[in-house]
């Protein structure tokens, strides 16, 4: 496990709530969000995290017009984890981001 290399941030997009407006794609400074190729259940192409490079800046969250489409997580201080933290594989975020 290479702790140095893990991203500072992590993006989750709720594919049922995202309406595919694309504002987060435009807003993300490191450009790590893209629109999905597939349409979701409601006919929208949804925002998808590229899977790496998120800084956890939260800008996408702020610009997104949908209350709960975007969740941004940030890496906790190494091993000091307690309480509110969630543990997940970064791969685990992927299906979430593109369903």
């Amino acid at each position: 496990m290479n702790a140095e290399k893990r991203d500072r941030g992590l993006l989750r997009v709720d594919g049922n709530e995202c309406k595919g407006c694309g504002l987060c794609v435009e807003a993300c400074p490191p450009k790590v969000i893209a629109m999905s190729e597939r349409l979701n259940h409601y006919g929208y192409r949804t925002a998808t995290y590229a899977g790496a490079g998120c800084t956890g800046c939260g800008i996408c969250f702020m610009v997104c017009p949908e209350p709960g489409a975007i969740t941004v997580l940030r890496a906790m201080a190494q091993r000091s984890a307690a309480g509110s933290g969630v543990t997940m594989g970064t791969e685990g975020a992927m299906p979430c981001a593109s369903n």
Partner: peptide, 20 residues
């Protein structure tokens, strides 16, 4: 990226509680 790479993340921005 390998799936063994497990990191601990905390939610910093999520749907506000003032919404239903």
């Amino acid at each position: 990226m390998s799936s063994e790479l497990i990191s601990e993340y905390e939610v910093i921005h999520a749907k506000p509680k003032a919404f239903y």
